[in-house]
Simulated scan of single mutants.
Amino acid sequence: MYTVKDVAERLGMNPHTIRFYTDHDLIPGLKRDKNNVRIFDEDSVAWLLGVKNLRDSGMSLESIKSYIELCLIGDESLPERIEIVRQQRENIENQLIDLMRCAKYLDNKLALYQKLISGEISIDVTNPNQWDKNKNDDEAFDIRNQCSVNSL
Rank of each mutant, 00 (worst) to 15 (best):
R101F: 13
Q95G: 13
I92N: 11
H24E: 14
D33W: 01
I84R: 08
M59Q: 03
D132A: 04
M13C: 03
I64R: 00
S122I: 02
W131S: 03
I97K: 12
Q146W: 08
F20G: 03
L70H: 03
N127C: 05
S57A: 10
A111Q: 12
L78P: 01
I64F: 04
R86Y: 10
D56Y: 12
D33R: 01
D137F: 03
N150P: 09
W47Y: 02
D124C: 04
I143P: 12
D25L: 11
D142M: 09
D33S: 01
I64L: 02
G12S: 00
K5Y: 14
N36G: 11
D25K: 14
K104F: 13
V51H: 00
N94A: 08
E80F: 02
L96Q: 12
R144M: 08
L30K: 00
A140R: 01
L48R: 01
F40S: 10
W47C: 02
L116E: 05
L112R: 09
L110H: 11
G74D: 00
Y21R: 08
N91H: 15
D142H: 06
Q88D: 06
H16Y: 11
Y105N: 10
N108V: 04
V51A: 02
N150H: 15
D124M: 02
S151M: 11
V4Q: 15
G74K: 00
G12F: 00
L112T: 12
A103K: 10
Q114V: 15
V45W: 01
I123V: 09
A46C: 05
V4Y: 11
I92V: 12
E93M: 15
V149K: 09
I117F: 10
L99E: 15
I68V: 12
E62F: 08
K31F: 06
S57G: 08
S118F: 05
D43G: 10
N36H: 11
M13I: 05
W131H: 05
A8D: 04
V45R: 01
M1T: 15
E69S: 12
G29S: 03
K34E: 13
M1P: 13
N53L: 09
I18W: 00
S148Q: 15
L96H: 15
D23Q: 13
E80G: 07
L54A: 07
H16D: 14
F20P: 07
E80W: 01
V7G: 09
L30Y: 02
L11I: 03
N35P: 04
S151Q: 14
N14K: 02
L112Q: 13
I97N: 11
T22S: 14
E62C: 07
D23G: 15
H16M: 08
A46N: 09
I64T: 05
V51C: 01
R144C: 08
L78A: 07
D25Y: 14
P28D: 06
K133D: 02
Q88A: 10
N108R: 11
E83T: 05
T22H: 15
R38S: 11
